[in-house]
Amino acid sequence: MPRLKPRPLAATLFALFAVPAAQAQEVVKIGMAGPLSGEIAHLGKALENGAVLAIDDLNARKLTIGGKKVTFKLQSEDDAADPKQGTAVAQKLADARVNGVVGHVTSGTTVPASRIYNQAGIPQISPSATTAVYTRQGFAGAFRVVANDAKLGGTLGRYAVGSLGAKRIAVIDDRSAYGQGVADEFVKSARTKAQIVDREFTNTKATDFSAILTKIKAKKPDLIFLGSMDAVAGPLLRQMKALGMPVKLMGGDGICTDALPRLAGDGMRDGEVICAEAGGVDASREKAVAEWTKRFHDRFHSDTQTYAPYAYDAVMTMAAAMQAAQSTQPSRYLPALKRVKHDGLTGTIAFDAAGDIKDGALTLYTYKAGARTKLEVIR
């Protein structure tokens, strides 16, 4: 038997410490849930892409949390903006033991999904769900990085009567948690100085509004408020034009998208639509957001839509809390998330006791020459 050569000291030390070094790494799974199919898939995909950019930026930093090198990974799931599918997706993410969830996109999926994340002890930050119900449930891990419907609908109501001088208003909502919620808040605010001449209901998949609009036209409103999404607003605008209704259409963030002119075809007049999105960038942030938007376009060759930057900020805020707590475990970084003050892309992100963003901004827009045009940012 040949004599074995002594093993070099360096090789011996490598063998002893290689396995522990390999173990001192951790994959941090961030769940992402939104509509990647269906009528508003363009919104869900934009938010998913915003989260992807955040994951890329975090991994480029080669972070160490709690003495371990961490790699962030996005687990993205399609809830199709359907509450039933949303709960199935939430259970899937809970079973996968994700470290946190960014989502859901719509209010109608966010609320039922939040119950599952709460039971599993998984923190959840929605980048876009605005229904006040979400954070009023008292769940410790429920947060959002945009203003809620109470502020959104109330602000639009005051703007309708104060700045636009609306006196006779018709209201349509799609009976979703978001649509009904923002419409209810709008009515509360607007009816103090204007008459609500009609309130009609539709659904999120409707495309024929001739009966509703004919009834509304007879009431001679000077403004219509729509609580729904851009997929509903587009055909509604086309049919308003066909019926000869030169009336302003107002809505919340659901209709306030870059895709609305395309969905409306030739049905939109300049200045006809007034809308607001929950969120807003002050002048000091505009350059950074513009640079980020260019990077988004270069990477994905698509529009950011409304909330992609907030999905980015939601991921980064969650990671900031993990760094502050020096732990990626939900129960350990949750207290840090409640106290977080993150200098985000869209502004400073901190939460109140309910999980709502503090000092949330709203941005008012109209459309001119087929492009969304900012009117003003309100806090």
Rank of each mutant, 00 (worst) to 15 (best):
V289Q: 10
G108Y: 05
L4P: 15
A190E: 08
R115D: 15
P20Y: 06
G370L: 06
M1Y: 13
H104A: 12
K68C: 00
T202E: 06
A142N: 14
A288E: 15
Y365E: 07
K215S: 15
D230H: 07
A88D: 15
P35L: 03
A194S: 11
T214C: 01
Q137M: 14
A324D: 07
F209I: 06
A231L: 02
Q329D: 15
A140L: 12
G50V: 03
G267W: 01
F143K: 01
G34I: 12
A320N: 02
R262F: 03
K241S: 12
L4K: 14
R285V: 02
L236V: 07
I116K: 08
A233H: 05
A177I: 12
V232E: 15
T204A: 13
A276N: 01
T306Q: 10
N148I: 00
T346D: 03
M316Y: 06
G138T: 10
L156R: 03
A336R: 09
L36T: 04
A288H: 01
A177R: 08
K217M: 03
A120P: 12
G50N: 04
G103A: 09
K29M: 09
A129I: 04
S37Q: 09
R238Y: 01
I216L: 13
G153Q: 02
F14S: 09
Y367N: 04
Y134G: 05
A324I: 00
A94Q: 05
C275W: 00
L58V: 11
A142R: 03
A132V: 13
T202M: 07
L375R: 10
A233F: 04
L263Q: 13
P330G: 07
A259D: 09
I255V: 14
T71D: 10
A150M: 05
G103R: 04
R97I: 01
L243A: 14
T87N: 07
I255A: 06
A80M: 12
T130Q: 03
T207S: 14
I30V: 15
A276F: 00
V146P: 04
Y312K: 04
G44T: 06
F186H: 10
R97N: 14
K62C: 02
V340M: 05
G86L: 08
I122W: 05
A51G: 13
A18H: 07
F143I: 04
E277C: 02
I116H: 10
E291I: 05
A132D: 15
K188H: 09
G279A: 09
D352C: 07
E376W: 01
A81I: 04
G138S: 12
R238C: 00
E200I: 01
V52H: 09
A369I: 00
I55P: 04
G67E: 00
